[in-house]
Amino acid sequence: MTRTIFISLPVTDLAASTAFYQALGFERNPRMSDEASACMAWSEAIQLMLVTHAKWRTFTQRPFPPAGTSGLMLSLAMDGREAVDAIQRAAAAHGGQADANPPEDFGFMVSRDLADPDGHLWATFWMDPEATPAHA
């Protein structure tokens, strides 16, 4: 089996979250989805499992983080600056928050963070490896 990462996220509204991630470019895998979860593919190796709170409780009994807090941020490499901007517009238009943190532009790299409808954070970035400053 190919090494694959499955990221599981608890969501309050499965249908709305599925539509949100589809708007960002994730593809729903119906074979791995049901009434309590949606498998959303970013690539062949990166799968996002959106799960209802009830299904999440079958994974763990640990408490949900308080609203407005974050325990992690996932990052998505984009094809260019316009792709970074486009995914931010899609997030804002589909119930998420664009620029959940201040955007950064280092010339060789741009980064903009978004939050999904449940507040899960995603960094979207583009970097030109040829223009990356040399590290000492």
Rank of each mutant, 00 (worst) to 15 (best):
T2F: 09
R3Q: 11
T4G: 05
T4P: 07
T4D: 07
F6A: 07
S8L: 09
V11K: 06
T12N: 09
L14W: 00
T18L: 11
A19I: 01
F20A: 09
Y21W: 13
Q22S: 08
Q22E: 12
A23F: 03
A23P: 02
L24S: 00
L24T: 05
G25R: 02
G25Q: 00
F26M: 13
R28V: 15
R28N: 15
N29Y: 05
M32E: 07
S37T: 07
S37E: 03
C39Q: 13
M40I: 10
M40T: 10
W42R: 02
Q47L: 11
L48D: 02
M49V: 02
A54F: 04
K55R: 09
R57W: 00
R57I: 06
T58I: 12
Q61F: 10
P65Y: 03
P66Q: 10
G68C: 08
T69H: 02
S70C: 05
L72Y: 14
M73Y: 06
L76R: 01
L76G: 05
A77D: 06
A77F: 00
M78I: 08
M78N: 09
E82D: 15
E82M: 06
V84I: 10
V84D: 10
V84Q: 10
V84T: 10
R89P: 01
A90W: 05
A91Q: 07
A92V: 14
A92R: 15
A93H: 15
G95S: 14
A98T: 05
A100Y: 14
N101C: 08
N101V: 06
P103C: 03
E104C: 09
D105R: 03
D105M: 05
G107H: 07
F108W: 15
M109Q: 08
D118N: 09
D118V: 06
G119D: 07
G119F: 12
H120E: 12
H120T: 14
W122I: 12
W122Q: 06
F125W: 15
F125C: 14
M127H: 05
M127L: 09
P129N: 08
T132Q: 12
T132M: 15
A134N: 12
